[in-house]
Design a binder for these strands. Structure first.
Lengths: 184, 184
DNA sequence: GGGTTAGCGAAGTCCGGACTCCGTTTACGC
DNA sequence: GCGTAAACGGAGTCCGGACTTCGCTAACCC
């Protein structure tokens, strides 16, 4: 592959993350092309269909999340690492997880695999924190991941004031701490 | 207004809630018409633009939520009422709150008003529960409403297993209970 | 029960966005 | 530098979905 082609591909993916992240799948391919500074034909040469472009954008995005998750797994204090990871995923890393809802019921295997790796990474961080006894044992990564996804998605669609989001995350963290049975 | 017109209007709104709730704003007007058992022109006669239809659907929906909220405000045990309301809004009542994200940055005043009433209703229930001392004082309705919206939206877009959702709600409820400072 | 008119549905028009064609440009090996 | 083929961009085509038109149907009033 020629070097300019490689560069364009990267610029298209970056533009796509921006556009689809902001407008959801309603974002148009032409907008992506304009933002990337290329012609629309170039977009379709690299990604034969809009769906392909979305898929590649998602995989790229999840790969970025995976890096953050890996870093958390290696941090010294397990519980602090977990809470920091939760904040991190919700506030910075996962800005465009909304994308995940764009493929509906049948996401392509590559995306499922990438998302699964991230979830597995979060699971590892969670278990390590549970082992310290500071985090409840009776909840698993499914619940945590659901909550992360939910807040990420919602704040992406309609941003909440940072202070509100912070306190909402506090509530979740308090709910995950030990010292209280199942809520009710 | 003639009686058949009124009936059709109601059937169209019910169909719209179904269609837009399932497919988001990607749902087509034609689909709504088919589900309502009327011609597409009838839909446009009652609601001159798709946006108008969506707006009316949202107001109708929020009105339904308001009823549930009012009922909770009148229930005997404040804390039990709050937890039940949270579950209720997330699991049954708010199935299509996703719609709320459909109008983007500038929702029509009627929708804002309807949503505001619901939020005020939730606030009343929350304050009553806080007065018992069983619910943390350092969080407000903003955080609660954000979490409800988040879970509602996410589970609408990609349903989570009921057991997972239940436990996730438990975590939130535990986070709202007193007996632990701000999470961290 | 008959006239009137609000209300109806099917068959359109129109537009925006996904995708293609083709003449031109430009990176890269010699 | 120059030939060549990979890569490009803009001007299309095509389709699906929002909205309109118009001849017909049937509720309501008397």
């Amino acid at each position: 592959m020629r070097q300019d082609a490689r560069e364009n591909r990267e610029r298209i993916l970056a533009a796509a993350e921006q556009v689809f992240g902001t407008h959801g799948e309603a974002g148009s391919t032409e907008e992506v092309a304009r933002l990337a500074g290329v012609g629309i034909a170039t977009v379709f040469r690299h990604f034969p269909a809009k769906e392909t472009l979305i898929e590649a954008t998602l995989v790229r995005h999840f790969t970025g999340l995976l890096d953050r998750t890996r870093a958390a797994a290696a941090a010294p204090d397990p519980t602090a690492a977990l809470t920091a990871l939760i904040r991190d995923l919700i506030k910075h890393g996962a800005t465009k997880l909304t994308l995940a809802s764009m493929l509906g019921a049948a996401p392509p295997p590559a995306v499922v695999a990438a998302a699964g790796q991230v979830k597995a990474g979060v699971d590892a961080v969670l278990r390590r924190a549970q082992a310290t006894g500071e985090i409840r044992q009776d909840v698993g990564v499914d619940e945590l991941y659901l909550l992360i996804r939910a807040l990420t998605q919602t704040t992406t669609v309609s941003p909440a004031p940072p202070a509100v989001l912070d306190r909402a995350i506090d509530v979740i963290l308090a709910g995950f701490a030990t010292g209280k049975g199942a809520g009710r």
